[in-house]
Simulated assay, not measured.
Amino acid sequence: MTTVPTRTVIALHGGCGVMSRALLSEAEWEDACADIRKALEAGYTVLSEGGSAVEAVEACVTVLEDSPHFNAGHGAALNANGQHELDASIMDGATAQAGAVAGAQAVRNPVRLARKLMGQTIPMMLAGPAADAYAVTQGLETMPQSYFTTPRRAEALAAMRAHDRLGTFASESEKHGTVGAVALDCAGNLAAATSTGGFTNKAVGRVGDSAVIGAGTYARNGICAVSCTGQGEQFIRHVVAHDIAARICYGNQTLTEAARTILAESFTPHGIGGGIIAIDQEGTICAEFNTEGMFRGWIDADGALFVATHRD
């Protein structure tokens, strides 16, 4: 009997929030969407050539980390000291192996460092200077802090500091941002990866859900792969990425039901924005968010490419 290969799927998000059309120029919106397409095509090329889901999400997120339009790698948010502290994680649904990095300040592509750590039994997670030092031993490219800073992020930090002085509130789009990808490969394996600079003006040393397996990133063969975006503390409190898998496995919910329910129960009533990109074992794609918009895109099992920013 001939085994029919699984039809590959890849999906990504580039962060959610109250994304005013005026936040970016038309050219910037177009450039951001072009980088989403580039990231999807990078991941899909890996899958089309028989590569693994892990390789695909790493390739996809790396492109987004290199783009100035997203809060990860080049273009990451600045903390309260005007520095970049980068978080990332990756997980293989076939083996439950995972790797994570928190508070890195020099590695160009944190997702690649997380992938290197995934191959280690101990440690699977490193933080701060130790993470950057390990990146050097693994031959990964490191950069000065100035590489990660863009004019837009410097302006966002100034705006957040002004909000603090005046006692006014910042919009979600001024604060947050994350990138992530999920994939299903031709062998039927799932994987997920997430990367972020955290939120603008965050406390020095703060670590969000993007570095926490089960909170912002989770993958398990036979169930789903998940990457999250939004207020990280809430995703950690509710172990959202894993909870979605649990709702499917033990509660018999569909992927979409699980994602919608947790946003409706644990985020929306508290006025907290969140977004989820996920796929299940059949290649069903889920893109749920309770904000005005979420950068998102995918290439489905039929090879059709889709990219969107807002609800419309």
Rank of each mutant, 00 (worst) to 15 (best):
G93I: 02
T261R: 13
V46Q: 11
I244V: 10
C33G: 12
D185K: 04
E292D: 14
I122C: 11
G303M: 06
D209V: 02
M19N: 14
E265V: 12
L157I: 06
R37C: 14
F148L: 03
A94H: 10
H238S: 13
G251M: 07
G283R: 01
S171G: 15
F169N: 12
L126R: 05
T229C: 14
A131L: 01
E141H: 05
Q234D: 13
A34L: 12
Q120C: 15
Q145R: 05
A76T: 03
T256D: 14
A72K: 05
D66K: 12
S48W: 06
I213T: 09
G51M: 01
A301R: 11
D31E: 15
T284G: 04
I90P: 01
G177Q: 02
Y218K: 06
V136N: 00
M160G: 05
E172M: 14
P144Q: 14
Q281D: 15
R112L: 00
A131F: 04
A301F: 06
R152K: 12
A203C: 10
A245K: 01
R112E: 05
F306D: 00
D209G: 10
A241H: 08
R161A: 13
A246L: 13
E30P: 03
E41S: 14
R247L: 15
G14M: 04
Q234Y: 14
A114D: 07
I10A: 09
G216N: 02
T229P: 06
L113S: 10
V101L: 00
A191I: 04
Q120M: 15
D35H: 01
A127H: 03
R37W: 10
R296W: 10
A225V: 08
L64M: 14
E58K: 00
G51C: 08
R296P: 06
E141Q: 08
L166K: 15
P123H: 00
G188Y: 00
V63F: 10
K175T: 06
S25F: 09
H238W: 14
H310W: 15
A98M: 13
A215R: 00
S173G: 09
A191P: 05
F70L: 10
T137S: 07
M118C: 11
A80D: 11
Y134V: 05
V239W: 05
C60W: 02
A211K: 11
R220S: 13
E257D: 15
H84L: 07
A100F: 04
P68L: 01
A162W: 14
G222I: 07
A22M: 14
I299F: 08
A278V: 10
E155A: 15
R7I: 01
V101W: 00
C228F: 07
A59V: 08
M125S: 09
T150V: 03
G283T: 11
A77G: 04
L40V: 13
T142Y: 00
P269L: 03
A94P: 04
G14E: 00
D302C: 13
A278P: 10
A39N: 03
G283C: 12
R153Q: 15
N221H: 07
G119C: 12
Q281F: 11
A114N: 03
T137P: 09
G274M: 02
A170C: 15
V9R: 08
A183D: 01
V239H: 06
L263S: 00
T196A: 09
T3N: 13
D92G: 04
F70C: 12
E265M: 07
H163C: 15
G99K: 03
A158W: 11
G15Q: 01
D132T: 02
